[in-house]
């Protein structure tokens, strides 16, 4: 199965169907918008969503970490959906299971956990952005210089395909332009924001099994 790649300067990024990026040179797995703890947060407030639904994302993440053995796991915000609940500890045990992977979080608008929770599992937290060479990682888009490239999450991009016979299909997508890339939400308990097919946009949709450029 062919995995699409793109390059920034001399860096290679693989676009994975599991809604994540793999940065080859730095052995870094990049993903965004997990919204962990959402199910528990709902339940705590009397909304009866099955608890298992929140655990599926952790299983997926575990698979990915086993597959790629990355040096770093870089999360572009909205790692945890809201205030602390038990699901944070599940995430913690997952990190402990992969001690060679360093977990880095660039904070998003949902990340309201107190610092000691991050510290407990050695999660390195960047308040707004992380800059590596000309590449900027942030939760939401910010202004950047001409020669820079920004990778973000936040909006949960999706793309709607139309086929013959008026068929319609909405899928999560990676939304790339000349100097920017928006990642799809990794978390399953999220919606989709429909993206336009701009002329200068490269859109990669994921079926979960494969990634297609459309």
């Amino acid at each position: 199965m062919e995995i699409p790649v793109f390059h920034i300067d001399n860096n290679t990024f693989e676009i994975l169907p599991q809604k994540a990026l793999f940065w080859k040179e730095k052995q870094t797995l990049i993903l965004s918008d997990l919204h962990l703890g959402k199910a528990s947060h709902f339940r705590k407030n009397g909304m009866a969503i099955p608890i298992e639904s929140g655990l599926e994302d952790l299983i997926q993440l575990d698979h990915l970490l086993e597959m790629y053995h990355p040096k770093r796991l870089l999360i572009l915000g909205d790692l945890f959906h809201s205030a602390y609940n038990q699901e944070w500890e599940y995430f913690g045990s997952l990190l402990k299971k992969h001690p060679d992977t360093e977990c880095i979080l660039v904070r998003g608008n949902h990340d309201i956990l107190q610092m000691h929770h991050y510290e407990k599992y050695n999660v390195v937290v960047y308040k707004n952005t992380l800059k590596e060479g000309n590449i900027i990682f942030a939760h939401d888009v910010i202004e950047i210089a001409e020669h820079e490239f920004i990778i973000t999450g936040h909006i949960h991009p999706g793309f709607v395909l139309f086929g013959k016979g008026r068929q319609r299909l909405a899928l999560p997508c990676f939304y790339k332009k000349k100097n920017s890339l928006i990642l799809p939400a990794f978390g399953g308990l999220t919606g989709l924001a429909r993206m336009p097919k701009d002329k200068d946009a490269e859109i990669y949709v994921s079926t979960g099994e494969r990634v297609f450029r459309v």
């Binding site: 395909l161 139309f162 086929g163 013959k164 068929q167 299909l169 899928l171 949709v205 079926t207 099994e209 494969r210 297609f212 459309v214």
Partner: peptide, 9 residues
Amino acid sequence: LEDRLFKMK
């Protein structure tokens, strides 16, 4: 899903 997507594409 893959077949349909391929056709639409």
